[in-house]
Write a protein that binds this DNA or RNA. Structure first.
Lengths: 251, 251
DNA sequence: CCGATTTTGTTCTCACGTTCACAAGCTCCT
DNA sequence: AGGAGCTTGTGAACGTGAGAACAAAATCGG
């Protein structure tokens, strides 16, 4: 999403070995669907079958797969194992990636404890926190280490992916340290917009934003006409933690 | 995203009081940026300031805001408090929404303790799980209740939003129960594609997908030429059952 | 061996999203 | 009062994504 890609304006030169971002985002879904089919003992599946399992329509699925190559057989469908391997390879999960998690609060614990997480594809090599009270504590089969060790760990384990589960406050600083240490992909759970230099990918997961999007649609479902039209800043229903500094109009 | 919207093919009738989905997804980001500015005591901000704070470009921000109405002043900028209220109202977080969380494993715990919920218009009214060993356990100031009570709770508290943090297995069944009970918006953390009837909104948060997307870009950064071209189904590196954050003790 | 049937891969069209560029409108200074 | 200087709001151009429709290729039955 925030990929710093080398776009050039020239001709419509799509596919300089580049897959559309929207397709990339769906490949993991297809991968999971294929794994499920494989586990059910199904050896071959049509685009229709796959599309149903992945929750998309079959035309889109076929077009997505066509960016990878021609891995299907007309009149037959796709070989589940073969296609699964091709997608896994394209995504890059045939090798495994070293990951560090920074900020071992509730969410950090949850991610660290998730057993399937460390097994395949991604390998958690360290849990880091700056709180001296946490350092040394065991989480699953790992021990929380001092954030100061970050640089050594990143170098020693060739870590390229960092997960930030700190509060908003220290997130940017943690991010800067990760980048300086050589991490080039970041998954951010902290509720702030992080800035990173070109060449570093960042993705964000934000629970409260997801809920707000749902709330928007929910609101329109219930009272389409019940919306107050342009109210003049009423009491705000007390829902924000605002001490409201200087909120006057004329600045 | 999966909004079952009433699209009609006729003329380009955008804006039958409808805001583009991409814009809706950014409004919460603007809301947060405005809150931060407000907390810093800033009363007025230009689209450039806001855009920087929100991590987008200013043209996009202005266009997004224009869907809500004309809330800025040319030559001056936007009044932070006023705009904040308008966005909050448009999203629907000026009222508060009752939420149930189903599946109190590691992730469910983390969400239950997440403070960002209550301050932004969402009120957790129940934590549910089907595991008898968990029922009655306290999490923060709440107690885990039996999933069987779902229907009563939804009706009593007018719950419209449900969060699913169960493992993949029971997720669809939980989803069906939620829908049958009257929940019309669902946030799903389980690593499966859920199907819901029209009129129900569903959004998905999936850690393993996010990581895989990062891995894809990471792979292309490192070995652009090191990619094996079309290998013939080698050992698969044993990567089945990719992890996702849905983990936890079952519902 | 040939035609019927199935299903992929791809082309074409339309809708959506992003960005540019600029006129309209506001404030402030002289 | 009037012009200079900003900043918004929006029209238009461009790029990306989605879906329909169909030709190409494979299997199967006779």
């Amino acid at each position: 999403m925030t990929r710093a890609s080398s776009r050039r304006p020239g001709p419509p030169t799509r596919t300089e070995r580049g897959i559309p971002e929207a397709t990339v985002a769906r490949l993991p879904v297809y991968l999971r669907a294929l794994t499920a089919l494989s586990d059910s003992g199904i050896a071959t599946a049509s685009s229709e079958d796959l599309a149903t399992a992945a929750g998309v329509n079959s035309a889109k699925l076929r077009k997505d797969l066509s960016y990878l190559g021609s891995y299907g057989t007309r009149g037959v469908g796709y070989d589940v194992e073969y296609l699964r391997y091709q997608i896994a390879r394209e995504i890059g999960v045939t090798q495994d990636w070293a990951v560090v998690i920074v900020g071992i609060g509730n969410l950090g614990h949850a991610l660290a404890n998730y057993s399937g997480f460390g097994t395949r594809g991604f390998r958690i090599v360290a849990l880091l926190d700056a709180d001296p009270n946490l350092i040394g504590e065991r989480v699953g089969d790992m021990e929380i280490r001092d954030f100061a060790e970050l640089e050594d760990i990143v170098e020693a384990d060739r870590v390229s992916i960092g997960v930030i589960t700190t509060p908003a406050g220290p997130a940017q600083e943690v991010c800067d340290r990760l980048v300086a240490a050589g991490v080039t992909s970041i998954l951010n759970f902290a509720p702030v917009v992080l800035s990173v230099p070109d060449g570093v990918d960042i993705r964000k997961v934000d629970l409260s934003i997801e809920l707000q999007i749902l709330a928007y649609h929910e609101q329109r479902k219930s009272g389409e006409a019940a919306l107050p039209q342009v109210p003049e800043l009423p009491a705000m229903n007390g829902l924000t933690d605002l001490p409201s500094v200087g909120g006057g109009v004329g600045a």
